[in-house]
Amino acid sequence: RPFRVCDHKRTIRKGLTAATRQELLAKALETLLLNGVLTLVLEEDGTAVDSEDFFQLLEDDTCLMVLQSGQSWS
């Protein structure tokens, strides 16, 4: 499924495809050149996407933000 993913400053944006939350996090880690533990949130309001069940309910092309440890949505 297609998703739009950005870093916490919204300066890097990438289109990625993934079937699972874990797959998307792995691709974001590599594509956005990030490291460490990542958190996935909705870009629009910062809602945490912390379960596979919730991830599977997201629509195609949902905009997501990837946060590294110590970063927060704004």
Rank of each mutant, 00 (worst) to 15 (best):
G15Q: 14
T47S: 11
W73P: 04
L33F: 11
A28I: 13
G36P: 09
L58M: 08
N35Q: 13
R10G: 07
E30T: 11
C6M: 13
A26Y: 13
L38S: 10
Q68T: 08
L38R: 02
G46E: 00
L34V: 09
R4F: 15
T39N: 10
V37A: 11
G46M: 00
N35Y: 07
V5P: 03
G15Y: 15
P2Y: 15
H8M: 10
D53K: 11
C63I: 07
D50E: 12
T20Q: 01
D50L: 06
T47C: 07
D45V: 03
F54H: 14
C63T: 08
V49L: 03
L64V: 09
L40W: 03
L42D: 02
L33D: 12
L33W: 14
V66N: 01
T39S: 11
S72P: 08
A18K: 03
L40G: 04
T17M: 15
Q71P: 00
V49R: 00
L24R: 00
R10A: 04
D53A: 08
R21S: 06
L16K: 01
L40S: 03
P2T: 15
C6Y: 05
F55W: 05
A26I: 10
H8S: 14
A48I: 13
G36F: 03
L16T: 06
G15E: 09
A48Y: 10
A19I: 11
C63R: 10
C6Q: 03
F55S: 02
T62Y: 00
L32K: 07
T20F: 04
L34R: 02
S69I: 09
K14Y: 08
V37E: 15
E52W: 02
S51C: 08
L38V: 11
E23I: 05
A26M: 14
A28R: 01
T31V: 11
N35T: 11
D60A: 14
R13K: 15
T17S: 12
S69Q: 14
T47G: 07
S51F: 04
E23S: 05
G46T: 06
D53F: 04
F3Y: 12
Q22W: 05
L64E: 03
T47Q: 13
T31L: 12
S72F: 10
V5F: 04
V41I: 06
D45L: 05
F54P: 05
A26L: 13
E44N: 09
R4T: 09
K14F: 08
L67R: 06
T39H: 11
A28W: 06
T39L: 06
L38P: 15
S74M: 10
L16C: 09
L64K: 00
T20V: 00
L58K: 02
C6F: 06
E52N: 06
E43W: 00
L33I: 13
Q71W: 00
L58G: 03
G15D: 12
Q71Y: 04
K27G: 11
I12Q: 08
L42I: 12
G36R: 13
S74P: 05
L16M: 13
S72E: 13
R13S: 13
E43Y: 02
A26Q: 15
V49A: 02
T31F: 11
Q22F: 10
C63S: 12
L29R: 12
H8Q: 09
D50Y: 05
D7P: 00
E43G: 01
A19N: 09
K9D: 07
A26P: 03
L33C: 15
K9Q: 09
H8Y: 10
L40V: 12
V37D: 13
L25V: 08
K27T: 09
A19K: 13
A48T: 11
L64C: 04
S72K: 13
D50N: 08
E43D: 12
D45Y: 03
L29K: 11
E30S: 15
T17W: 09
C63K: 12
E52Y: 00
S51N: 08
D61S: 08
F3V: 03
D45R: 00
L40I: 12
E44R: 07
S72D: 06
Q68D: 06
D45T: 11
A48F: 09
F55M: 05
F54D: 12
V66R: 02
E52I: 04
E43M: 03
V49G: 03
L57E: 13
D60S: 14
A18P: 00
Q22Y: 10
T11S: 15
K14Q: 09
V41N: 01
E59K: 13
D45P: 06
K9C: 10
A28T: 10
G36L: 00
G70A: 05
V49W: 00
A18E: 02
S72T: 12
A28Q: 02
Q68R: 05
R4C: 07
E30I: 06
D50P: 09
G46P: 02
G46Q: 08
L38T: 09
V37G: 12
L42R: 15
E43T: 00
L40P: 07
A28S: 13
E43V: 03
E59P: 14
G15A: 14
L67W: 00
V37C: 15
S69G: 12
C63W: 06
K9S: 12
Q22H: 10
H8T: 06
A28P: 01
A28F: 01
G70M: 06
L16H: 00
L16P: 02
R4W: 05
R10F: 06
F55E: 01
W73S: 03
T17N: 12
L16W: 02
L24V: 12
G36H: 08
S72H: 12
A28M: 07
V66P: 00
T17R: 08
E30H: 11
T31I: 15
E52P: 02
